[in-house]
Write a protein that binds this DNA or RNA. Structure first.
Lengths: 198, 198, 198, 198
DNA sequence: CATGAATGAGTATTCATTCAT
DNA sequence: TATGAATGAATACTCATTCAT
């Protein structure tokens, strides 16, 4: 008789997640074509075949990683933040504090952000799926920018450009986190300066 | 066969440069492992074998590209700029204007900057070679930052961090130039804001 | 656990036979290299591992199947038939009737015959083991052919060739039985005509 | 400059045919799953990669072989034969003579016939393509059978069954040709006896 | 010199077999 | 004992490199 069927499913789910999470960082650091299944398996600490028990192919694994690393939750949080009855200045501050904090503590957060780039770098097609959430993230940020502009605390210019600039800098330091051993993280003020009026 | 021997060399040099320049952009966009020689040759419009007439291997081609895309000239220019008897504010302005200008007009400039990242992303070893010039670039920029700090026009903090931040943003928009079709370029003011005091 | 020890053995023997019989047909239809253990297990309705409880390897299973599907009993029957004090014509008739009858009713009989082919097709080495009985089958058949030739009812020619021809046709319709859904079975007369004189 | 472009295409076509022909016999003898690309390449005397220059995959190679080994020409010939103003007896004689003659001399003919079986054995889907011509072959043969029945020289029964029986025997000896080293080929009379009335 | 077909080392994927439960 | 997830050796397939033309 097999193990308890529920426990069994749990274990399978666990392994799948293990592969998914470990691969995410590996792909983020090495790119799709730079990642060999044999190396990846060794890195995860499993046999090559095991990967194929859970995923049909290298490509499919990559797609699944991508689904997993969606900005869904972040968008929800940002939506709430943007709707709060506080000044844009305060919103930006809260956002910057949260983002830089996670960036410093959570390598997965950095990986998630970097992966989006891999996708661009490797001209993948999954972008569309991802782009939706990324766009929402930008839109809510842009809204805050507009509020800030009305309040006179954020520089003039296309609010979308500003949002793009702001998140671009975040992405920049995600890359640094992932690929550099020694680097100086910017401060909250540094980040805010990209968009705040003097 | 025995055409004019000089003309012959010229022709050779021409083809070599053609390969070198076209490959630079291709590598910048696709990464080292993401680039297949067969695709590259098709992109350049030559036979695969031709590449091997001028370069020993894919790796060697990449190294040669790297030598070509050195910051040597830029360092020289920056050195001169940093030594000018003008305010840091003005130096930053001149630098930003020049950099953003080239970024907008010259895809090769964007490619050169992006390549440095490929190297980091793919954990290559040539970094040492490259790092030397990159470091000098950062050092001269840091010097300007320090001057600016003394003049009270540039924000406090490690001058190296500021230089790194400044060039990071430049790199960010080099990527956008290379990989995005529609994007809004930042203005000189946007770029300067990363480091200028209000 | 310690049920009746005999009953236990019985159960084991049952499972072993289940695997053996089901595999026989599967191998006969798909060939040795065309059979995946995972598919076979699914077809039988058991886990992959279970097969390895009863058989050391895919190869060993195949050998065991082969032992099981020996012509031993058929040879014995044919020996008796060939020794009967009746005309070759009658012997051939009895044989043809029996063979075509079994072919129509018993898929295992068809499978047994087809398997011999797999062995030839896949150039296995077990042929030697099998060949012995097959040879005897042919020899007793050839004897009947010779009797028939003396009686003037069977066509001239090498008696072995005729036996080979006769069983070849039987094999042909074993294949049809196994692999075809709609086909017309030959009659006893059709089969006899291959060797009978007009 | 490359070789003369026409000569080049010729050479390519030659290699493609070389692979196609050599593979046909190899597949016929070893089956689809029993054929390793590495072994096949060694057998042909080329590098493994070369196969992939001409064919997308093992499966595609197999399909191409199948297209090549169609009964197209045979059907045409048989159509002409069936329309000749001679007796069915004579037609059958001409056909049997031709078929057994080719079988003895031409291994490719045997391979072609055997391949059809591989397809059945391996339950492929290409059968449909092949089946068309096979069916025509059977239909023209059945016509001759009907003529023979009217002329009283061919045994009674479904003409299609007789055609199927006749070609079945041919297939049987194609297998013997391919897989057996020592065997006795049947004579024209042996073959004809399957269907001729005494 | 330029080419692209041929090659085989390297990489992705499959599948017989093991083993913890 | 029965299972099916895990494994790695075996196999299919890719791609940098060579070489005859």
């Amino acid at each position: 008789m097999p193990k308890s069927p529920e426990r069994c499913k749990e274990i399978k789910e666990e392994m799948r997640n293990k592969i998914l999470h470990a691969s995410m960082l590996y792909f983020a650091k090495n790119g799709f074509s730079g990642t060999k299944i044999s190396d990846l398996a060794k890195y995860i600490g499993i046999g090559q075949g095991t990967i194929y028990v859970y995923f049909e192919s290298k490509e499919e694994l990559f797609k699944e990683i991508f689904k997993m690393t969606t900005y869904e939750k972040d968008v929800k949080d940002l939506k709430i933040l943007s709707a709060l009855p506080i000044s844009a200045r305060q919103k930006i501050h809260k956002l910057s504090k949260a983002v830089l904090g996670r960036l410093e503590q959570d390598e997965y957060f950095a990986g998630k952000i970097a992966l989006n780039t891999q996708l661009v770098l490797e001209k993948s097609d999954y972008i569309t799926d991802a782009a939706t959430y990324q766009l929402e993230l930008y839109e809510y940020t842009a809204k805050i920018m507009e509020q800030g502009q009305r309040e006179g605390r954020i520089v003039e210019g296309s609010s979308m450009k500003l949002a793009d600039y702001y998140w671009g800098v975040v992405y920049l330091y995600a890359l640094k986190k992932l690929f550099t051993t020694k680097y100086e993280m910017i401060t909250i003020e540094d980040l805010e300066r990209t968009i705040l009026k003097k």
